[in-house]
């Protein structure tokens, strides 16, 4: 017999995310310096014991801004995932459960949406509703919906044909009850995996949008915006680029590992 395999992905993923969650919670009460306070005379300091990650061109403490930046990141990620999962499951579940020509139409629309590079849609949505943290999150949430809808749909189609559903149908259980009580709990795990991937992608997309100047706006600290602001200082003050860049990477990595970990876990169980 093989020894029990440690789920390293889950372990590391959880650890990384826990670390950032704690950082975020702490940042609500304490940051080493005021996040937005400007001290021009103190600008572009290299990392030191006073400023662990150095200071930016306005003399603001980069560590404090990164800590506050995790708030924005978690906020955007949560809103995106929430929108994606709720609407994705509703649309995909409906299409999968009802089937027929309605399913066909919905899936064609979703295909059309997915045939379209997401960033372009995001650019247009942001252009209409204006920039800002919440608008960015909503735009990205709309983008996350079709992918999750597909997953939900295939889950519903698979489960619909199973005996327990037809049994429930035959004894006249209300369709809504079947959907929420019977099918949904059974496609729970792929949805959780999809949600954590959506969270990771949302963080990256927010960074890209902010980099293009279309995402989170000042003075809200955003990791993506910090990266954009740092671009001109790349050669002279590399820490300004590296600190937010590495933070985003770790954060996204945490969510990817979490999703893989959950997937491994459920795969094992099903075996």
């Amino acid at each position: 017999m093989k020894r029990k395999k440690i789920n390293l992905n889950l372990l590391v993923g959880c650890f990384v995310l826990l670390f950032f969650l704690v950082t975020m919670v702490v940042s609500f009460f304490y940051t080493p310096y005021d996040v937005n306070a400007i001290a021009v005379s103190n600008k572009l300091q290299a990392p030191s014991s006073a400023h662990w990650f150095g200071t930016d061109p306005f003399g603001r403490d980069i560590l404090s801004r990164i800590m506050a930046g995790t708030q924005t990141a978690f906020f955007v990620g949560s809103v995106v995932t929430l929108i994606g999962v709720v609407f994705g499951t509703l649309i995909g579940g409906f299409a999968g459960y009802v089937g027929g020509w309605l399913d066909e139409i919905i899936m064609r629309a979703i295909d059309a949406l997915m045939a379209f590079p997401g960033i372009i849609l995001a650019i247009m949505i942001v252009a209409v509703f204006g920039t800002g943290t919440l608008n960015t999150a909503i735009a990205l949430g709309i983008l996350a919906t079709p992918g999750i809808a597909r997953i939900a749909r295939s889950g519903f189609i698979q489960n619909k044909q199973l005996e327990y559903v037809s049994a429930a149908k035959s004894i006249g259980v209300h369709p809504l009850k079947i959907i929420f009580r019977e099918i949904l709990p059974n496609i729970y795990s792929p949805l959780i995996v999809a949600a954590s991937v959506a969270f990771a992608i949302a963080l990256l997309a927010e960074a890209s949008l902010s980099y293009l100047g279309l995402g989170v706006q000042p003075p809200d600290p955003s990791l993506g915006r910090m990266l954009k602001e740092s671009q001109e200082y790349l050669t002279t003050s590399p820490w300004f680029t590296l600190a937010p860049g590495i933070t985003i990477t770790l954060l996204v990595l945490g969510f990817y590992m979490l999703s893989n970990g959950i997937r491994d876990l459920t795969d094992h169980r099903s075996k």
Partner: peptide, 14 residues
């Protein structure tokens, strides 16, 4: 948003 200058100066002014 078309020039970084504005957001730089605005952050200080605020």
């Amino acid at each position: 948003s078309h020039a970084e200058l504005y957001s730089d100066a605005a952050q200080i002014a605020v």
